[in-house]
Simulated assay, not measured.
Amino acid sequence: MADLQWDEVKCFFDPELMGALPDVYVPGTSEEDWQRVLDLIEARGWQWEFRQGDMTLPLPSAAEVLFRPPDAELVELKVWPVSGVLAIFRLMAAEEIDFDIDLRELQGQAGVDTLCGFLTDIGRELGKPVLMTPEGGSQAHPVLGFDPAHDRVMLLASPL
Rank of each mutant, 00 (worst) to 15 (best):
G28W: 06
T29K: 09
S30Q: 06
S30L: 09
E31F: 07
E31G: 10
E31W: 06
E32P: 01
D33T: 07
W34D: 02
Q35W: 08
V37T: 12
V37Y: 00
L38S: 12
L38T: 06
A43D: 05
A43M: 04
G45N: 02
W46A: 11
W48M: 04
E49G: 03
F50T: 00
F50V: 00
R51I: 02
G53A: 04
D54R: 08
M55T: 12
M55H: 13
M55W: 14
T56K: 04
L57N: 05
P58M: 05
P60H: 04
S61T: 15
A63H: 10
E64V: 00
E64R: 15
E64H: 14
V65M: 10
L66Q: 09
L66V: 11
R68A: 14
R68N: 00
R68Y: 05
P69M: 04
P70D: 12
D71M: 12
D71E: 12
A72Q: 02
L74D: 15
L74P: 03
V75F: 02
V75Q: 13
V75L: 01
E76H: 11
L77C: 14
L77D: 06
L77Q: 03
K78H: 15
K78C: 01
V79W: 07
W80H: 07
W80Y: 00
G84C: 09
G84A: 10
G84M: 10
G84W: 02
V85C: 10
V85F: 13
A87R: 05
I88S: 13
I88N: 07
R90P: 02
L91T: 11
L91A: 15
L91S: 11
M92K: 11
A94T: 01
A94K: 07
E95H: 08
E95I: 09
E95G: 13
E96V: 08
I97S: 04
I97C: 03
D98M: 14
D100E: 11
D100G: 14
I101M: 11
D102I: 13
D102E: 15
R104W: 07
E105R: 06
E105F: 09
Q107V: 00
G108N: 13
A110G: 06
A110C: 08
G111E: 03
V112S: 05
V112N: 03
D113K: 05
T114D: 01
T114H: 03
L115K: 07
L115R: 07
G117W: 06
L119F: 07
T120Y: 05
D121T: 00
D121Q: 09
D121M: 06
D121H: 04
D121G: 00
G123E: 03
R124C: 04
E125D: 01
P129D: 09
V130A: 10
M132V: 15
M132Y: 02
P134C: 10
P134T: 13
E135N: 09
E135S: 13
G136Y: 08
G137S: 04
S138E: 14
A140F: 03
A140E: 15
A140L: 14
H141V: 13
H141F: 14
H141D: 07
P142M: 02
P142I: 06
V143F: 12
V143L: 15
L144Y: 05
D147T: 07
D147C: 12
P148G: 01
A149M: 07
A149F: 08
H150V: 09
H150G: 09
H150E: 11
D151T: 12
R152S: 07
V153R: 01
M154T: 03
L155D: 00
